[in-house]
Computed example of a mutant assay.
Amino acid sequence: MDKTRVKTADDFDRVQFVQIEADEQGQRIDNYLIRVLKGVPKSKIYRILRKGEVRVNKKRAKPEYKLAENDEIRLPPIRLEAPGPANVSSAKVEYLEDAIMFEDDRIIVINKPSGIAVHGGSGLSFGLIEGLRILRKQAPFLELVHRLDRDTSGCLLIAKKRSALRHLHEQLRNNQVDKIYHALVKGHWPQKRFKVKAPLHKNTLKSGERMVQVNDAGKPSETQFRILKAYSKASLIEAKPITGRTHQIRVHCLHAGHPIACDDKYGDSEFDAFVKQQGCNRLCLHAAQIRFIHPKTGQQVSFEAPYDKKLAAIVKKTL
């Protein structure tokens, strides 16, 4: 049986059998499919997995299944409902070039703008990673190492080689990657509140929107906090997530009684209106710093992302 390589969107309309190679093992099947089925909406990929249309060694596979060398994947015919990001011109994503803080042959560190999703899907034709692939058309491999919420800005790490991705994912699993966030929150954060430990449970609404709440049935979660600046009606805080749950910092701040400014999911409408009157209408959460071991040199490196104009302006005001 011919084990093909998925190459272009033209391949998606027929059944394919793909054999996993040595440098592809260890990754989750959902992440693998998102990478190789470029232009296919993420929601469709999860749908065909859920329905059992994707088979691994002739058996159904859950999204979290870890691929092994020589696994045989059967991909069903996939009908694309809309053109993929290949139709987006380079001019529309050139702003990402200015956001790149560091780049070499292994990684890209980018200061992700607020308001852009890290990848396409859920009604979005393309996101940051698709934009980078348009800017770096000659790069054979570009993958997200981790994610940031759409409205969160700051440090985002991209791998340019599969070996680098594996190395960085191992660091994430071993808690060797430090991520530091800054957030503008409602009220006075207590001087002695250094951490929030509260289990988080994720729900997906019928609309596909993800909502997270503190619930004993959820996964253990911890965030460490430090006050950076106190205002009369707000606090600028530093947040360091010890675990990496969806919306963790946002929900932990809400749980502590200090929701983040302009958070359309977990915010306080009165406080948000006050902040918007001051000229800032974006989520006031920023991935300010990231530290990790460089996959090539073995040395620890650190990068800091400056605030954008709106966030820089609001934290200088007398709130």
Rank of each mutant, 00 (worst) to 15 (best):
D98P: 09
G131T: 10
L228W: 04
N174F: 08
F303H: 09
Y95F: 15
L172C: 14
L33I: 01
P259K: 01
I107T: 15
A234N: 08
K310A: 10
D2S: 06
E94D: 11
E94P: 15
V185I: 05
P295T: 09
H294T: 14
G115E: 14
I108N: 07
L285W: 11
K3R: 15
H294S: 02
P199E: 13
V54T: 03
N31C: 00
H188Q: 12
P63Q: 03
D30V: 05
E21Q: 08
A234M: 15
V145M: 13
T243G: 07
Q289A: 14
N174Q: 15
A86H: 15
L285K: 04
T318N: 11
L37S: 03
R35F: 02
A273E: 12
E130V: 00
C262Y: 01
V145P: 03
K316L: 13
I227T: 12
K62G: 07
I100P: 02
S235L: 05
V118P: 15
K3G: 02
T246R: 05
L283C: 03
A82L: 07
M1F: 05
L157E: 06
R50V: 01
A183Y: 07
A9G: 11
S125A: 09
F17E: 14
E304K: 01
G127K: 03
V275A: 10
Q213E: 09
D13P: 00
E103A: 14
H188N: 14
G131H: 04
S163P: 15
A91Y: 09
N111V: 05
S269F: 13
I116Q: 10
Q278A: 09
K296R: 08
E209C: 04
R35C: 03
A305G: 09
P140W: 04
K197M: 08
A239Y: 07
H252S: 04
I29Y: 02
L285E: 00
I45T: 11
H286C: 03
G267C: 00
L168D: 02
N174V: 13
I107Y: 02
S89P: 07
C280R: 06
G131M: 04
R74C: 13
K137L: 13
Q27N: 05
G208E: 12
K310N: 07
A164H: 04
P83T: 01
I116E: 02
K42S: 13
K296A: 08
L144H: 01
S232Y: 09
Y46H: 00
K112D: 02
Y32W: 09
L135E: 13
F126D: 06
V185R: 02
V36Y: 07
G84L: 08
Q248T: 00
P241L: 03
N87M: 10
Y46R: 00
